[in-house]
Design a protein around this nucleic acid. Structure first.
Lengths: 196, 196
DNA sequence: AATATAAATGAATATTCATTTATTTATAAA
DNA sequence: TTTATAAATAAATGAATATTCATTTATATT
Protein backbone atom coordinates (compact mmCIF):
# COMPACT_ATOMS: atom_id res chain seq x y z
CA UNK A 1 0.00 0.00 0.00
CA UNK A 2 1.34 3.36 -0.98
CA UNK A 3 1.97 5.67 1.97
CA UNK A 4 0.90 9.30 2.23
CA UNK A 5 3.70 11.82 1.82
CA UNK A 6 3.84 13.88 5.04
CA UNK A 7 5.88 16.66 3.42
CA UNK A 8 3.13 17.12 0.86
CA UNK A 9 0.46 17.26 3.55
CA UNK A 10 2.48 19.83 5.47
CA UNK A 11 3.09 21.88 2.35
CA UNK A 12 -0.63 22.05 1.63
CA UNK A 13 -1.36 23.50 5.09
CA UNK A 14 1.42 26.04 4.88
CA UNK A 15 0.59 27.24 1.37
CA UNK A 16 -3.11 27.42 2.15
CA UNK A 17 -2.45 29.88 4.96
CA UNK A 18 0.01 31.83 2.82
CA UNK A 19 -2.42 32.18 -0.06
CA UNK A 20 -5.38 33.13 2.10
CA UNK A 21 -3.36 35.75 3.96
CA UNK A 22 -2.06 37.16 0.67
CA UNK A 23 -5.27 37.20 -1.38
CA UNK A 24 -8.05 36.82 1.19
CA UNK A 25 -10.74 34.16 1.01
CA UNK A 26 -12.13 35.88 -2.06
CA UNK A 27 -8.90 35.20 -3.98
CA UNK A 28 -8.33 31.69 -2.71
CA UNK A 29 -9.18 28.59 -4.75
CA UNK A 30 -8.43 24.89 -4.74
CA UNK A 31 -6.78 25.12 -8.17
CA UNK A 32 -4.47 27.93 -7.08
CA UNK A 33 -3.54 26.00 -3.95
CA UNK A 34 -2.73 22.87 -5.94
CA UNK A 35 -0.64 24.88 -8.37
CA UNK A 36 1.22 26.62 -5.54
CA UNK A 37 2.03 23.19 -4.10
CA UNK A 38 2.86 21.71 -7.51
CA UNK A 39 0.44 18.86 -6.93
CA UNK A 40 -2.76 17.70 -8.56
CA UNK A 41 -5.93 19.34 -7.36
CA UNK A 42 -7.42 15.86 -6.95
CA UNK A 43 -4.83 15.15 -4.24
CA UNK A 44 -6.40 17.87 -2.10
CA UNK A 45 -9.60 15.83 -2.15
CA UNK A 46 -7.73 12.85 -0.78
CA UNK A 47 -6.60 14.93 2.19
CA UNK A 48 -9.85 16.81 2.71
CA UNK A 49 -13.52 16.24 1.96
CA UNK A 50 -14.00 19.59 0.28
CA UNK A 51 -12.91 23.22 0.31
CA UNK A 52 -14.64 24.07 3.58
CA UNK A 53 -13.24 21.00 5.25
CA UNK A 54 -9.75 22.01 4.19
CA UNK A 55 -10.06 25.56 5.46
CA UNK A 56 -11.67 24.55 8.74
CA UNK A 57 -9.13 21.82 9.44
CA UNK A 58 -6.18 24.09 8.79
CA UNK A 59 -7.79 26.78 10.91
CA UNK A 60 -8.62 24.54 13.85
CA UNK A 61 -5.20 22.94 13.87
CA UNK A 62 -3.48 26.33 14.02
CA UNK A 63 -6.04 27.60 16.50
CA UNK A 64 -5.23 24.80 18.90
CA UNK A 65 -1.52 25.48 18.62
CA UNK A 66 -2.11 29.14 19.41
CA UNK A 67 -4.36 28.33 22.35
CA UNK A 68 -1.64 26.08 23.75
CA UNK A 69 1.00 28.77 23.32
CA UNK A 70 -1.23 31.22 25.14
CA UNK A 71 -1.66 29.25 28.35
CA UNK A 72 1.96 28.07 28.48
CA UNK A 73 3.23 28.62 32.01
CA UNK A 74 0.00 30.33 32.97
CA UNK A 75 -2.12 29.38 35.95
CA UNK A 76 -5.54 30.87 36.75
CA UNK A 77 -4.49 31.16 40.40
CA UNK A 78 -1.69 33.58 39.63
CA UNK A 79 -1.83 37.11 41.00
CA UNK A 80 -3.29 39.71 38.67
CA UNK A 81 -0.21 41.50 37.38
CA UNK A 82 1.92 38.39 37.27
CA UNK A 83 -0.75 36.43 35.40
CA UNK A 84 -1.55 39.17 32.94
CA UNK A 85 2.14 39.73 32.22
CA UNK A 86 2.55 36.05 31.45
CA UNK A 87 -0.35 36.15 29.03
CA UNK A 88 1.04 39.21 27.27
CA UNK A 89 4.40 37.50 27.05
CA UNK A 90 2.88 34.35 25.54
CA UNK A 91 0.82 36.25 23.00
CA UNK A 92 3.72 38.48 22.05
CA UNK A 93 6.00 35.48 21.64
CA UNK A 94 3.49 33.62 19.51
CA UNK A 95 2.84 36.60 17.29
CA UNK A 96 6.52 37.26 16.69
CA UNK A 97 7.10 33.59 15.91
CA UNK A 98 4.05 33.37 13.61
CA UNK A 99 3.68 36.76 11.96
CA UNK A 100 1.03 35.71 9.44
CA UNK A 101 -1.26 33.93 11.87
CA UNK A 102 -2.76 37.10 13.27
CA UNK A 103 -3.94 38.18 9.87
CA UNK A 104 -5.21 34.66 9.24
CA UNK A 105 -7.25 34.58 12.44
CA UNK A 106 -8.58 38.07 11.72
CA UNK A 107 -9.72 36.84 8.31
CA UNK A 108 -11.41 33.81 9.83
CA UNK A 109 -13.17 35.96 12.39
CA UNK A 110 -14.63 38.20 9.65
CA UNK A 111 -15.54 35.35 7.30
CA UNK A 112 -18.39 32.87 7.03
CA UNK A 113 -16.22 30.35 8.90
CA UNK A 114 -16.36 32.45 12.06
CA UNK A 115 -18.94 30.40 13.95
CA UNK A 116 -17.45 26.96 13.42
CA UNK A 117 -13.95 28.24 14.07
CA UNK A 118 -14.69 30.06 17.32
CA UNK A 119 -16.88 27.25 18.57
CA UNK A 120 -14.09 24.75 18.07
CA UNK A 121 -10.80 25.82 19.50
CA UNK A 122 -11.84 28.10 22.34
CA UNK A 123 -13.52 25.42 24.44
CA UNK A 124 -10.96 24.81 27.22
CA UNK A 125 -9.29 28.12 26.69
CA UNK A 126 -12.17 30.36 27.63
CA UNK A 127 -12.84 28.44 30.83
CA UNK A 128 -9.36 29.07 32.17
CA UNK A 129 -9.58 32.73 31.17
CA UNK A 130 -12.79 33.54 32.98
CA UNK A 131 -11.64 31.57 36.02
CA UNK A 132 -8.60 33.83 36.26
CA UNK A 133 -10.77 36.94 36.07
CA UNK A 134 -13.12 35.71 38.76
CA UNK A 135 -10.19 34.90 41.02
CA UNK A 136 -8.62 38.33 40.82
CA UNK A 137 -11.97 40.02 41.34
CA UNK A 138 -12.73 37.85 44.36
CA UNK A 139 -9.29 38.61 45.80
CA UNK A 140 -10.08 42.29 45.31
CA UNK A 141 -7.16 42.91 42.93
CA UNK A 142 -9.42 44.54 40.34
CA UNK A 143 -12.90 46.07 40.49
CA UNK A 144 -15.81 43.83 39.51
CA UNK A 145 -16.68 44.18 35.82
CA UNK A 146 -18.24 42.18 32.99
CA UNK A 147 -15.93 39.70 31.34
CA UNK A 148 -16.18 41.55 28.03
CA UNK A 149 -14.97 44.79 29.62
CA UNK A 150 -12.06 43.03 31.27
CA UNK A 151 -11.05 41.31 28.06
CA UNK A 152 -11.35 44.46 25.96
CA UNK A 153 -9.19 46.54 28.27
CA UNK A 154 -6.70 43.77 29.03
CA UNK A 155 -6.02 42.45 25.53
CA UNK A 156 -7.47 44.60 22.76
CA UNK A 157 -4.58 47.13 22.96
CA UNK A 158 -2.07 44.31 22.54
CA UNK A 159 -3.81 42.86 19.50
CA UNK A 160 -4.06 46.33 18.03
CA UNK A 161 -0.33 46.94 18.46
CA UNK A 162 0.41 43.68 16.69
CA UNK A 163 -1.85 44.72 13.85
CA UNK A 164 -0.05 48.04 13.53
CA UNK A 165 3.19 46.10 13.50
CA UNK A 166 1.98 43.79 10.75
CA UNK A 167 0.82 46.68 8.63
CA UNK A 168 4.32 48.09 8.97
CA UNK A 169 3.24 51.67 8.76
CA UNK A 170 0.37 53.11 10.71
CA UNK A 171 -1.74 56.22 10.52
CA UNK A 172 1.11 58.69 10.94
CA UNK A 173 2.93 57.47 7.85
CA UNK A 174 6.04 56.74 9.89
CA UNK A 175 7.01 53.07 10.04
CA UNK A 176 6.08 51.30 13.26
CA UNK A 177 7.87 48.34 14.82
CA UNK A 178 6.57 46.64 17.93
CA UNK A 179 9.57 46.37 20.26
CA UNK A 180 9.87 44.95 23.76
CA UNK A 181 10.00 48.49 25.12
CA UNK A 182 6.78 49.57 23.39
CA UNK A 183 5.08 46.34 24.43
CA UNK A 184 5.78 46.74 28.14
CA UNK A 185 5.08 50.45 28.08
CA UNK A 186 1.60 49.57 26.84
CA UNK A 187 1.29 46.74 29.34
CA UNK A 188 1.97 49.16 32.20
CA UNK A 189 -0.84 51.43 30.99
CA UNK A 190 -3.24 48.50 30.90
CA UNK A 191 -2.26 47.42 34.41
CA UNK A 192 -2.80 50.99 35.60
CA UNK A 193 -6.29 50.90 34.09
CA UNK A 194 -7.34 47.66 35.78
CA UNK A 195 -5.48 47.62 39.10
CA UNK A 196 -7.45 48.83 42.10
CA UNK B 1 -31.48 61.50 -22.90
CA UNK B 2 -32.60 58.97 -20.35
CA UNK B 3 -31.66 59.88 -16.78
CA UNK B 4 -30.09 57.55 -14.25
CA UNK B 5 -32.43 56.29 -11.53
CA UNK B 6 -31.02 57.43 -8.18
CA UNK B 7 -33.11 54.94 -6.19
CA UNK B 8 -31.55 52.13 -8.17
CA UNK B 9 -28.04 53.47 -7.56
CA UNK B 10 -28.75 53.74 -3.85
CA UNK B 11 -30.24 50.27 -3.72
CA UNK B 12 -27.11 48.78 -5.28
CA UNK B 13 -24.90 50.30 -2.58
CA UNK B 14 -27.12 49.18 0.25
CA UNK B 15 -27.59 45.63 -1.02
CA UNK B 16 -23.88 45.28 -1.77
CA UNK B 17 -23.02 45.99 1.86
CA UNK B 18 -25.80 43.73 3.10
CA UNK B 19 -24.66 40.81 0.96
CA UNK B 20 -20.98 41.20 1.77
CA UNK B 21 -21.69 41.40 5.49
CA UNK B 22 -23.93 38.34 5.31
CA UNK B 23 -21.78 36.08 3.09
CA UNK B 24 -18.32 37.63 3.16
CA UNK B 25 -16.36 38.62 0.06
CA UNK B 26 -15.97 34.95 -0.79
CA UNK B 27 -19.74 34.57 -1.12
CA UNK B 28 -20.39 37.83 -2.93
CA UNK B 29 -20.94 37.98 -6.69
CA UNK B 30 -22.15 40.49 -9.26
CA UNK B 31 -24.96 38.18 -10.32
CA UNK B 32 -26.22 37.74 -6.78
CA UNK B 33 -26.10 41.50 -6.26
CA UNK B 34 -28.06 42.15 -9.45
CA UNK B 35 -30.64 39.57 -8.46
CA UNK B 36 -30.96 41.02 -4.96
CA UNK B 37 -31.62 44.44 -6.55
CA UNK B 38 -33.95 42.98 -9.21
CA UNK B 39 -31.91 44.65 -11.96
CA UNK B 40 -29.81 43.41 -14.83
CA UNK B 41 -26.21 42.56 -14.04
CA UNK B 42 -25.18 44.69 -17.01
CA UNK B 43 -26.55 47.74 -15.21
CA UNK B 44 -23.92 47.28 -12.53
CA UNK B 45 -21.31 47.81 -15.22
CA UNK B 46 -22.89 51.14 -16.13
CA UNK B 47 -22.46 52.30 -12.56
CA UNK B 48 -19.03 50.78 -11.98
CA UNK B 49 -16.06 49.75 -14.10
CA UNK B 50 -15.84 46.28 -12.59
CA UNK B 51 -16.31 44.30 -9.39
CA UNK B 52 -13.32 45.81 -7.61
CA UNK B 53 -14.38 49.31 -8.60
CA UNK B 54 -17.83 48.67 -7.15
CA UNK B 55 -16.54 47.34 -3.85
CA UNK B 56 -13.94 50.07 -3.44
CA UNK B 57 -16.37 52.87 -4.26
CA UNK B 58 -18.99 51.63 -1.84
CA UNK B 59 -16.31 51.18 0.80
CA UNK B 60 -14.75 54.62 0.37
CA UNK B 61 -18.10 56.37 0.38
CA UNK B 62 -19.08 54.72 3.65
CA UNK B 63 -15.62 55.27 5.06
CA UNK B 64 -15.88 59.00 4.48
CA UNK B 65 -19.26 59.13 6.16
CA UNK B 66 -17.86 57.35 9.17
CA UNK B 67 -14.84 59.61 9.34
CA UNK B 68 -17.16 62.61 9.32
CA UNK B 69 -19.30 61.14 12.08
CA UNK B 70 -16.18 60.59 14.16
CA UNK B 71 -14.95 64.16 14.20
CA UNK B 72 -18.41 65.68 14.65
CA UNK B 73 -18.19 68.29 17.42
CA UNK B 74 -14.59 67.34 18.07
CA UNK B 75 -11.73 69.83 18.15
CA UNK B 76 -8.06 68.85 18.46
CA UNK B 77 -7.60 71.65 21.01
CA UNK B 78 -9.99 70.08 23.48
CA UNK B 79 -8.73 68.90 26.84
CA UNK B 80 -7.80 65.25 27.07
CA UNK B 81 -10.74 63.73 28.89
CA UNK B 82 -13.29 65.99 27.25
CA UNK B 83 -11.91 65.27 23.75
CA UNK B 84 -11.61 61.54 24.24
CA UNK B 85 -15.13 61.35 25.65
CA UNK B 86 -16.45 63.12 22.58
CA UNK B 87 -14.69 60.65 20.31
CA UNK B 88 -16.06 57.68 22.22
CA UNK B 89 -19.50 59.24 22.03
CA UNK B 90 -19.23 59.73 18.26
CA UNK B 91 -17.99 56.23 17.62
CA UNK B 92 -20.59 54.67 19.88
CA UNK B 93 -23.34 56.68 18.22
CA UNK B 94 -22.17 55.75 14.73
CA UNK B 95 -21.93 52.08 15.60
CA UNK B 96 -25.38 51.96 17.13
CA UNK B 97 -26.84 53.79 14.12
CA UNK B 98 -25.00 51.59 11.59
CA UNK B 99 -24.75 48.16 13.15
CA UNK B 100 -23.52 46.38 10.01
CA UNK B 101 -20.77 48.86 9.12
CA UNK B 102 -18.37 47.61 11.76
CA UNK B 103 -18.46 44.13 10.35
CA UNK B 104 -18.09 45.59 6.86
CA UNK B 105 -15.01 47.61 7.81
CA UNK B 106 -13.53 44.60 9.60
CA UNK B 107 -14.01 42.57 6.43
CA UNK B 108 -12.35 45.26 4.33
CA UNK B 109 -9.42 45.48 6.71
CA UNK B 110 -8.76 41.75 6.43
CA UNK B 111 -9.30 41.55 2.65
CA UNK B 112 -7.22 42.28 -0.43
CA UNK B 113 -8.89 45.71 -0.56
CA UNK B 114 -7.21 46.77 2.68
CA UNK B 115 -4.46 48.91 1.21
CA UNK B 116 -6.53 50.95 -1.19
CA UNK B 117 -9.27 51.39 1.38
CA UNK B 118 -7.08 52.58 4.24
CA UNK B 119 -5.07 54.83 1.96
CA UNK B 120 -8.19 56.56 0.78
CA UNK B 121 -10.52 57.64 3.50
CA UNK B 122 -8.16 58.28 6.39
CA UNK B 123 -6.32 61.24 4.85
CA UNK B 124 -7.72 64.22 6.77
CA UNK B 125 -8.87 62.13 9.65
CA UNK B 126 -5.48 60.92 10.82
CA UNK B 127 -4.04 64.43 10.77
CA UNK B 128 -6.58 65.75 13.23
CA UNK B 129 -6.12 62.69 15.43
CA UNK B 130 -2.37 62.96 15.85
CA UNK B 131 -2.65 66.72 16.36
CA UNK B 132 -4.91 66.06 19.33
CA UNK B 133 -2.45 63.59 20.81
CA UNK B 134 0.46 65.95 20.43
CA UNK B 135 -1.51 68.74 22.09
CA UNK B 136 -2.40 66.75 25.18
CA UNK B 137 1.15 65.48 25.50
CA UNK B 138 2.57 68.98 25.17
CA UNK B 139 0.12 70.24 27.79
CA UNK B 140 1.31 67.44 30.05
CA UNK B 141 -2.09 65.81 30.34
CA UNK B 142 -0.74 62.38 29.38
CA UNK B 143 2.77 60.90 29.33
CA UNK B 144 4.65 61.00 26.01
CA UNK B 145 4.13 57.81 24.00
CA UNK B 146 4.14 56.62 20.39
CA UNK B 147 0.96 57.34 18.48
CA UNK B 148 0.30 53.62 18.04
CA UNK B 149 0.38 53.05 21.79
CA UNK B 150 -1.97 55.93 22.42
CA UNK B 151 -4.40 54.74 19.77
CA UNK B 152 -4.33 51.14 20.94
CA UNK B 153 -5.06 52.00 24.56
CA UNK B 154 -7.55 54.77 23.78
CA UNK B 155 -9.72 53.03 21.16
CA UNK B 156 -9.02 49.32 20.79
CA UNK B 157 -11.10 48.45 23.91
CA UNK B 158 -14.07 50.34 22.46
CA UNK B 159 -13.88 48.60 19.09
CA UNK B 160 -13.57 45.29 20.85
CA UNK B 161 -16.68 45.92 22.93
CA UNK B 162 -18.61 46.73 19.79
CA UNK B 163 -17.43 43.48 18.24
CA UNK B 164 -18.59 41.52 21.28
CA UNK B 165 -21.90 43.33 20.98
CA UNK B 166 -22.25 42.43 17.31
CA UNK B 167 -21.45 38.78 17.96
CA UNK B 168 -24.24 38.81 20.53
CA UNK B 169 -22.61 36.23 22.73
CA UNK B 170 -19.01 36.31 23.81
CA UNK B 171 -16.60 33.81 25.27
CA UNK B 172 -18.59 33.16 28.43
CA UNK B 173 -21.62 31.90 26.54
CA UNK B 174 -23.84 34.49 28.23
CA UNK B 175 -25.34 37.07 25.85
CA UNK B 176 -23.64 40.45 25.89
CA UNK B 177 -25.24 43.79 25.11
CA UNK B 178 -23.23 46.99 24.98
CA UNK B 179 -25.13 49.47 27.13
CA UNK B 180 -24.36 53.09 28.03
CA UNK B 181 -23.34 51.94 31.48
CA UNK B 182 -20.83 49.37 30.20
CA UNK B 183 -19.49 51.85 27.66
CA UNK B 184 -18.68 54.54 30.19
CA UNK B 185 -17.39 52.07 32.73
CA UNK B 186 -14.84 51.02 30.11
CA UNK B 187 -14.16 54.63 29.16
CA UNK B 188 -13.27 55.42 32.77
CA UNK B 189 -10.74 52.58 32.84
CA UNK B 190 -9.14 53.88 29.65
CA UNK B 191 -8.92 57.40 31.07
CA UNK B 192 -7.33 55.99 34.20
CA UNK B 193 -4.73 54.26 32.05
CA UNK B 194 -3.74 57.36 30.09
CA UNK B 195 -4.21 60.25 32.52
CA UNK B 196 -1.09 61.41 34.30
C1' DA C 1 -43.09 65.77 -32.57
C1' DA C 2 -38.51 64.31 -33.92
C1' DT C 3 -33.90 63.37 -32.54
C1' DA C 4 -30.07 62.26 -29.95
C1' DT C 5 -28.15 59.87 -26.15
C1' DA C 6 -27.34 57.51 -22.14
C1' DA C 7 -29.81 54.11 -19.13
C1' DA C 8 -31.25 49.63 -18.85
C1' DT C 9 -31.72 45.10 -20.31
C1' DG C 10 -31.56 39.75 -21.70
C1' DA C 11 -28.69 36.84 -23.56
C1' DA C 12 -24.22 35.45 -24.63
C1' DT C 13 -19.09 35.07 -23.79
C1' DA C 14 -14.94 33.17 -22.01
C1' DT C 15 -12.97 32.00 -17.83
C1' DT C 16 -12.56 30.08 -13.34
C1' DC C 17 -14.55 27.42 -9.90
C1' DA C 18 -15.13 23.04 -6.89
C1' DT C 19 -15.48 18.47 -7.54
C1' DT C 20 -15.31 13.74 -9.94
C1' DT C 21 -13.60 9.98 -12.93
C1' DA C 22 -10.44 6.88 -14.86
C1' DT C 23 -5.84 5.64 -14.60
C1' DT C 24 -1.16 5.09 -12.99
C1' DT C 25 2.22 4.72 -9.18
C1' DA C 26 4.34 3.43 -4.96
C1' DT C 27 4.70 0.42 -1.11
C1' DA C 28 3.34 -2.62 2.87
C1' DA C 29 2.09 -7.25 3.50
C1' DA C 30 1.67 -11.98 1.56
C1' DT D 1 7.95 -11.69 -6.43
C1' DT D 2 3.27 -11.14 -6.42
C1' DT D 3 -0.76 -8.93 -4.68
C1' DA D 4 -3.59 -5.68 -2.59
C1' DT D 5 -4.52 -1.00 -1.61
C1' DA D 6 -4.29 3.64 -0.94
C1' DA D 7 -1.77 7.72 -2.87
C1' DA D 8 -1.32 10.57 -6.62
C1' DT D 9 -2.43 12.21 -10.95
C1' DA D 10 -4.22 14.19 -15.65
C1' DA D 11 -8.14 15.19 -17.64
C1' DA D 12 -12.85 16.11 -17.62
C1' DT D 13 -17.32 17.73 -15.60
C1' DG D 14 -21.02 21.05 -14.91
C1' DA D 15 -21.99 25.08 -12.39
C1' DA D 16 -20.80 29.72 -11.24
C1' DT D 17 -18.04 33.53 -12.18
C1' DA D 18 -17.05 38.40 -14.19
C1' DT D 19 -17.66 40.82 -18.15
C1' DT D 20 -19.44 42.15 -22.88
C1' DC D 21 -22.74 42.56 -26.80
C1' DA D 22 -26.70 43.79 -29.33
C1' DT D 23 -30.90 45.76 -28.51
C1' DT D 24 -34.62 48.32 -26.40
C1' DT D 25 -36.34 52.12 -23.45
C1' DA D 26 -36.83 56.55 -21.42
C1' DT D 27 -36.11 61.38 -21.45
C1' DA D 28 -33.78 66.00 -22.13
C1' DT D 29 -33.02 68.93 -25.90
C1' DT D 30 -34.06 70.61 -30.46
Amino acid sequence: MRVRNPDKVQLVKQKAIELIVKDGFEGFSMNKLAKACSISVATLYIYYKDRDDLILNVAMEEGEMMAKAMINGFDPNMHFEQGLRRQWQNRYQYMMDNPVMNTFFDQLRTSSYQDKFLAGFLADFKIIMSKFMHNIIQRGEIEPMPFEVYWSVAFAPLYNLVRFDNEGQSMTGKPFKLTDEVLWQTFNLVVKALKK
